[in-house]
Design a protein around this nucleic acid. Structure first.
Lengths: 149, 149
DNA sequence: AATAATGCTTGCATTTTGCAAATAAAAGGA
DNA sequence: TCCTTTTATTTGCAAAATGCAAGCATTATT
């Protein structure tokens, strides 16, 4: 049987490959990061630039520019907050919402295809396992960080 | 309970974050791709440039340059094959093997930390689930590929 | 031989990245 | 209140990564 490290290396790579191909929707090519940004803005309620950048683990300057490109593509709106005008809140435009939904469907279709190869019991087991893994990884800090300089 | 897409979005992101921090070893900073290259060269037996690039899903020209930098770092050797001198085989240097081992230990430590939070039964279940997921994803093509041009 | 196909590398031009510095707005202290 | 700090975000820049087209070297096909 394969050892644990190999198992994780492989699944990590699979998710990576899955990601590289992400996503074409409605004539627009959406990069991986962009799709994550759309997802995250959709999930949170009018999040600030910082909140999304943090959630995605992206450097904020890079993120700022990614948002700019999404604004240019007319998928995202950015408005200064009324309470504190330093903070800019992000939300999806109608088109952005549309794209997010299309991507959502694509991924759901893919997931259904995966689980079509499993019994209901296996599917339940896999889902609970991923959930458990998610929670546990959330509790622990991240792996293998380079020494701070 | 969370829906499947959310679950996968989260685990994908966790693996991504895990990856970004990869890796510092023996005073060298190893990037994510580089660590995957080292892993893959170590796993295969004297693979060719193409074989590794393919396994990692990287464009071969980008890969070629990544290998060059690993050669400069003295972690990898590249030799023309005797049978067919177009083919160049890759292997780790002593130093490269060393680095690969250090990274391996780092990741194993992290994995042990994760599983220390679980019962033996949970651990077994999670491992078998990932294995099942790996195999199933392997059978299916990748998700959401953009239309070819 | 001459032509085609294969494996790999280089030339570019584009994109992405992230640190340092800049800007703008709010908070805190005298 | 004015001045200094802190916070949120954006730009300058320089380095790195990317990928297509073209190149070079070697082998296969005819």
């Amino acid at each position: 049987m394969e050892n644990t490290r190999d198992l994780f290396q492989m699944i990590t790579r699979r998710f990576g490959l899955l990601n590289k191909n992400c996503c074409s929707a409605d004539g627009l090519d959406i990069s991986l990061i962009q799709s994550h940004i759309l997802y995250e803005i959709n999930r949170q309620l009018a999040p600030s630039v910082q909140e999304v950048a943090e959630a995605l683990g992206t450097d904020i300057t890079t993120f700022s520019r990614q948002v700019q490109s999404l604004i240019k593509m007319n998928l995202v709106n950015k408005t200064p907050s009324l309470n504190d005008r330093r903070i800019h809140t992000l939300e999806l435009t109608a088109e952005g919402t549309n794209i997010a939904e299309i991507i959502d469907e694509q991924i759901n279709t893919y997931l259904e295809e995966i689980f079509a190869h499993m019994t209901d019991f296996e599917k339940e087991t896999v889902l609970r396992s991923i959930q458990l893994l998610n929670n546990t990884m959330g509790k622990i800090g991240s792996c293998c960080a380079p020494a701070p300089r």
